[in-house]
Design a protein around this nucleic acid. Structure first.
Length: 658
DNA sequence: CGAGGGGTTGTTTTT
DNA sequence: CAACCCCTCG
């Protein structure tokens, strides 16, 4: 009989703390920051110092002698995690940077590289984004012959969204089609068939999409005791931020991660749940106390961000909300200006107003960095962008279409991916199609050859038209010299690819100078990575938001820059002055949400999030009429959300043209 | 078989 | 007002 000696490695060292937590935090924050043991649900209202609390909590853990290795901080974006850990490091030193932090998805990607073999997953899998999934779906669709069908088949992107939605809501694809895409009901069977093929394709090619990352992580934790034990032994203290925006699967993963340690704190605000379209469940917050009946519930209700008038408007809006924890935020911050409600004649006038008002505020000493313009959908800002350019007001735009979705960048990345994985069919097809004289047919034929070739980069023996020969030769030559760089930093590889690609780009696009610049920007990003695989994984997990991404203009310049952002992308942030534009029925709330009650509720929460981003100064504006070409109708009613706010709490403004 | 033209489509939000 | 798709011509 072997005797087991229990060694408690979880020693919380009692020592004097460098930081005076009690002085820096309010009572509830202090409790949240200093109680490490057992489950905690922290309901944190907008601007209630949630991030600050988490930062001090991690600092306190480290100061108490808990090893950084034992802490895991799950956040909504990876940037949020790294910002928080930087701030922890500033408080207690470099230990802070050793804490594990990231999104559920990036955490899954790391864990699966390490422990995936427990469930038969090789560590060399690749991660695909929605665009890649679309390309694969397109390929499979033509293989199955669905593109020849008479009536219109949903677009590849739509199909990819259906699959993802099925995963996120944990429903079958036919269920999703009938619930959200009734117009494609007649294709339901074909779509389901496509779904099966898509699944097989991913398996055969070792590809994981975003949803798979979570699905595999859950499978790993729930089926492999060895892996789960290894993981929960390492991560003894787990925190999950933005818990209101997690889906069912993420909640179950959270419980499994908490394991027997049960040192789990989730933080969230049911009033700010804005991601149900991707399966987020507010109910995760409500159900947490059911999963842990002994959990401690801590509420942070004091707002440190906004002035009273702004907060009152926000509270007033939420009185119309149907459900949720009723809570009213309070602030110590004194009075301020009433939020402005600005009626403009049309979109153009709204753009001019915003630009002019921004300049006025700037004259009063408010930096552009401290102002933001928020909108429901990214195209709402087009007009404003023109106006800002006209007036030379520098800005960055967050949200909406991604930098990497641009065709020319996908082209460059596809070349790099081939170097990483010579059997990546989707990338090969994309790369081959760029060559003059090669169409879809030859491309597929050539790939068949490549798949079984000794040296996949040697294209000298492939069959193709004479016209294509030269192009193939050049590609082959480029790949030969590039292939030796698989294990080097990606910057040099990108240079080689770009040299090869520039002539093609010039040929294909009139606006090639602009596109050249984008590639230069990608090169700067690539320069930050040590390996090709890191770079590609990173791009898939969290693609740069914009071609003027902060990745390249971080602290390098001290120039002031205005932020334009979708409300979704503005989550968790704050500015001195905030403009909410297009508060117009049909725009915000969006036309598509008008039919369903729950979606309208979510739109309201979205407005709540927008309003509570403002610290001192808020203007909600709308054009009094807009012609909507999509529906062929005139949108001419201010947003119902404006009407829901007590009219005494808003100051109506009108524009007088001079 | 590829390329280029014309008609058609559909436009939230994101890891 | 784009991409995107399909179809026809070379």
């Amino acid at each position: 009989m072997v005797k087991t000696f229990k060694l408690n490695t979880d020693q919380t060292v009692d020592r004097a703390f460098k930081i005076d937590y009690a002085a820096l935090l309010n009572e509830q924050q202090y409790e949240a920051a200093t109680q490490f043991r057992g489950p905690i649900l922290c309901i944190a209202g907008a601007g209630s110092g949630k991030t600050r609390t988490l930062i001090y909590r991690v600092a306190r853990m480290l100061e108490s002698g808990i090893a950084p290795d034992n802490i895991l901080l799950l956040t909504f974006t990876r940037k949020a995690a790294s910002n928080m850990l930087d701030r922890v490091a500033a408080l207690v030193g470099n230990e802070g940077k050793a804490v594990a932090g990231g999104t559920y998805h990036s955490f899954a990607a790391n864990i699966l590289r390490k422990y995936g073999h427990y469930i038969g997953l090789k560590s060399s899998y690749s991660i695909i984004d929605e665009g890649d999934a679309g390309d694969i779906i397109n390929f499979l669709r033509s293989e199955l012959g669905f593109n020849k069908k008479e009536s219109r088949f949903p677009q590849k992107k739509t199909v990819a969204q259906m699959f993802s939605k099925a995963n996120n809501l944990e429903k079958t694809v036919p269920d999703i089609v009938s619930a959200f895409y009734p117009q494609f009901e007649e294709h339901s069977e074909d779509i389901e068939r496509l779904h099966e093929e898509f699944g097989k394709y991913k398996l055969n090619n070792m590809l994981l999409d975003y949803d798979d990352l979570l699905i595999y992580l859950h499978r790993l934790l729930s089926t492999s005791d060895a892996a789960r034990t290894a993981i929960t032994t390492r991560y003894r203290y787990v925190m999950a931020d933005e818990y209101q925006d997690t889906n069912g699967l993420q909640a179950r993963i959270t419980f499994l991660l908490a394991g027997e340690n049960r040192n789990i704190m989730v933080v969230g605000d049911d009033a700010q749940s804005i991601y149900s379209f991707r399966g987020a469940r507010v109910t995760n917050i409500l159900e947490f106390p059911q999963a842990y009946p002994d959990c401690r519930i801590i509420r942070l209700e004091e707002n440190y961000r906004s002035t009273r008038p702004i907060l009152e408007a926000a509270n007033s809006l939420m009185e119309s909300a149907r459900e949720g924890f009723k809570k009213t935020l309070v602030t110590q911050k004194g009075s301020g200006d009433l939020p402005a409600c600005v009626c403009c004649e049309d979109e153009q006038e709204q753009a001019m107003f915003v630009a002019a008002r921004i300049l006025e505020l700037r004259e009063q000493g408010i930096k552009l960095n401290n102002m933001a313009v928020l909108f429901r959908s990214s195209f709402h800002a087009y007009q404003l962008e023109l106006e800002l350019k006209r007036r030379n007001i520098p800005y960055v735009k967050w949200g909406g279409f991604k930098f990497l979705e641009a065709g020319h960048l996908k082209d460059v990345i596809s070349h790099m991916r081939i170097v990483q994985n010579p059997y990546d069919q989707v990338s090969w097809l994309r790369v081959l199609l760029l060559i003059e004289g090669i169409g879809t047919h030859s491309a597929s034929e050539i790939f068949k050859h490549i798949r079984f070739a000794q040296n996949p980069y040697d294209l000298s023996t492939v069959k193709a038209r004479a016209k294509a020969e030269k192009g193939l030769q050049q590609l082959s030559k480029m790949l030969a010299s590039a292939s030796s760089l698989v294990n080097s930093p990606p910057a040099r590889l990108l240079e080689i690819v770009a040299d090869y690609y520039f002539p093609i780009l010039k040929e294909r696009f009139d606006d090639y100078p602009r596109r050249f610049k984008d590639i230069d920007q990608l090169a700067i990003i690539a320069g930050k990575f040590a390996t090709l695989s890191d770079f590609l994984t990173d791009l898939a997990l969290e693609p740069p938001k914009d071609s003027v991404d902060e990745a390249l203009a971080p602290e390098t310049s001290e120039d002031e820059t205005l932020v334009l952002s979708t409300i979704h992308s503005a989550k968790g942030l704050e500015w001195h002055s905030v403009f909410v534009i297009h508060a117009l029925e049909g725009r915000f709330p969006s036309l598509r949400s008008l039919k369903s009650e729950p979606e309208l509720e979510e739109e309201r929460r979205l407005m709540y999030v927008a309003i509570t981003r403002a610290a001192e100064n808020l203007a909600i504006s709308y054009p009094s009429q807009i012609w909507d070409p999509a529906t062929g109708s005139l949108l001419a009613r201010p947003s119902r959300f404006i009407e829901e706010i007590d009219s005494n709490l808003l100051e109506p403004w009108q524009i007088a043209r001079q």
